[in-house]
Design a binder for these strands. Structure first.
Lengths: 133, 133, 133, 133
DNA sequence: GTGGTCTAGACCACA
DNA sequence: GTGGTCTAGACCACA
């Protein structure tokens, strides 16, 4: 996958990398077992301080997105066990609230938001059926 | 409105305050013209240094969320002109992508997300009708 | 003359009033001997704290623009003696530099600035002939 | 570039620094990509609290004059897109009016002002040709 | 009484 | 090493 970094964004560079990897996994561009470039390779490619790449990989490891095997490299982890249904619902609500706050300030309607969700959802590897809880 | 601060969050205190005010405006808890507590009042209430409150208000001013009238106080601004339709669409897409990335990692389905948007939307002051562009 | 106040400008209200009076004198809208409204009258008209109007009048008095006669009112002063030729040149240069800094950041050309000066100059009561020094 | 601070001016120290940087960019003394001294360096040089320098840099960032790269430093930004032609004209007129107000009070003639503009303009990086609008 | 400015100094996130 | 955050506290401009 290709990372694209904006060094003057308010989002820290290491967080941009971790977020983009997380997005790529959600879209299926990166799949469990895929190997990420080494810290040095990616540092050279993106012309970024290796410390920053290392911080990004540390963040992804912490989030359970990747597994680093010493001497072997860094690999996308198998899908992590989702949280409890209650926790999952709490998380979803939090993220939906963030979206609706921004959409309200942009002066958008509920219908426009739902349309955007439906359109963009095609690019993501969402669960096919409802969870039974 | 009530602000609630988590001093051990990674999110800076001043940013927590600004975000909560932004959310309150989106929900209609704060409306244009409403006066925010004075810097000193809020500092006393939250047991936080007045400089930190002032930084929060400065940030909101920069974002166009409030107007500061010297010697008078800080007030919620009238709704700022939204960006161009193209920019608005770009912003919406960005926020929807963030939601879908998280929802995918939580193992949720499109229907569950749409349901959550519909339910939570009731708490927000979204535009009633579609924008004509 | 009519003052128009923007309470949310970065320019303090008292300074807006003093500046507008200064402009009116430069354009001939106000002339030496003209009486200004009383502090109370102007405070009522502009819906502004009388302390603020008093500060504006104090500022104009300090700049030699008006004379306050106790019990009589506030009047536009006769044209103040201009500074020495050297000081006058220094002042002019300072104000021209301020204009050129802004014009450069706006991406304007020398010709556009000169045109604007010629056009706008008609509204001002500039000296007719060159000073002989 | 050299900053020179007058601590007893009515203009806040942080604003003096921001203004001088803005002037230096207009004259070409500072160019896009140039790095400003670090907050600590400039604080030592000017014998001013680092927080005050940081406030100056924050203000320049807000105005789009510089870009701050976390952990790297502060750099002059590429020239910001100027406002719309109409807005540009409005701004120019405002600044020309300010100049003419002062020049009138100094008892100067139109010819003297135009001469000063022509002379001082050489020091600025004004656009070479008229804008076509 | 309101927010704005500035100092002094500790500690942290980031590259 | 770079800027960012936060506290504590003095003093000032403005309304």
């Amino acid at each position: 996958m290709r990372f694209s970094i904006n060094p003057s964004s308010v989002e820290p560079v290491y967080a941009q990398i971790a977020r983009q990897a997380r997005e790529a996994v959600a879209r299926g561009t990166l799949r469990p077992g895929d190997q990420l470039p080494t810290v040095r390779e990616l540092a050279l490619e993106l012309v970024i301080n290796p410390n920053t790449i290392a911080a990004a990989y540390r963040e992804m490891e912490r989030a359970g997105l990747v597994r680093t095997l010493r001497g072997r490299g860094t690999f996308i982890a198998v899908i992590q066990a989702p949280a409890s249904p209650a926790e999952r619902r709490r998380q979803l609500q939090k993220h939906v609230e963030a979206l609706l706050t921004e959409a309200t300030h942009l002066g958008l309607s509920e219908e426009e938001i739902l349309d955007a969700v439906r359109t963009v959802a095609r690019k993501y590897r969402l669960r096919e059926e409802k969870n039974d809880e």
